[in-house]
């Protein structure tokens, strides 16, 4: 794959004495929505943190848009939404986005557009600390949409959202990707897999399999992505036996 936005090779990360990623290699295609699926604790967040350059890595390399991950040039080209909403609870939605917008040099109208996109129109002047968990997550997501980054790394962005909103957000992701953005979206909910162009199935710090949802179903003969995941785990266990 030559047209990769993110190239990870032999990435090794150790956290608190435990090896989280023993030597991960994978590529994330440009302009597509890639789903990073796997159980909680398999290293998804660590991988994402390494891609956006806030994780100390023990070895290996990551290049994002041709630059080493975390380099200065990437800071306005890569957007990151953490799993726990990271916004200021004592400010309003608009104040939060206004601040991050100034840091990101977002154009005029970007704040209103981002609020609209995440379905929070009418909530602009509400204090973030008084919002529900799902609304909080959307404020956090809106922050990353302010400057229309080329690469968007989203850590479980749809957890706890109602189905209608989830569908709308996935539509938004698709619109962003068709505009040329590269999206890496993690989830531990397998039913979100079918919405992705590409999938990376992760377990215990390793990529079990990569490919389009259709390819993975065909390769394993399973009826669902969850089934494909299980059969891949079984055959991996078989191989080491």
């Amino acid at each position: 794959m030559t047209d990769a936005a993110i190239v990870v090779s032999n990435l090794r990360v150790v956290r608190g004495g435990a090896v989280v990623l023993p030597g991960l290699s994978l590529e994330i295609a440009r302009g597509r929505v890639t789903g990073l699926l796997g159980p909680s604790g398999c290293g998804k967040t660590t991988l994402m943190r390494a891609i956006v350059g806030v994780q100390i890595v023990a070895g290996g390399t990551i290049s994002v848009l041709g630059e080493p991950a975390g380099s200065r040039q990437l800071r306005s080209r890569v957007g990151y939404v953490t799993q726990a909403p990271s916004v200021y609870g004592d400010l309003t939605v608009r104040e939060n986005l206004g601040y991050f917008g100034r840091i990101l040099r977002a154009g005029p109208g970007a704040v209103d557009r981002a609020i609209e996109t995440v379905g929070l129109a009418g909530f602009g002047d509400r204090r973030v600390g008084n919002l529900s968990g799902g609304q909080l997550a959307r404020v956090s997501l809106a922050t990353a949409l302010l400057n229309e980054p080329e690469v968007l790394v989203l850590d479980e962005p749809t957890v706890g959202l109602d189905p209608v909103l989830r569908r709308d957000l996935w539509k938004t992701f698709r619109v962003l990707a068709s505009g040329g953005a590269t999206l890496l979206v993690s989830s531990h909910v397998m039913d979100e897999a079918e919405r992705c162009d590409e999938l990376v199935l992760m377990r215990e710090g390793r990529a079990l399999a990569t490919g389009t949802p259709a390819e993975l179903l065909q390769r394993t003969g399973a009826p669902s992505i969850e089934g494909a995941f299980l059969s891949l785990i079984d055959s991996a266990a078989e191989a080491t036996r």
Partner: peptide, 13 residues
């Protein structure tokens, strides 16, 4: 602890 510092560290600031 609110995670906003980590977010800012990924931004051009």
């Amino acid at each position: 602890t609110s995670g906003t510092l980590e977010r800012l560290m990924t931004m051009p600031v």
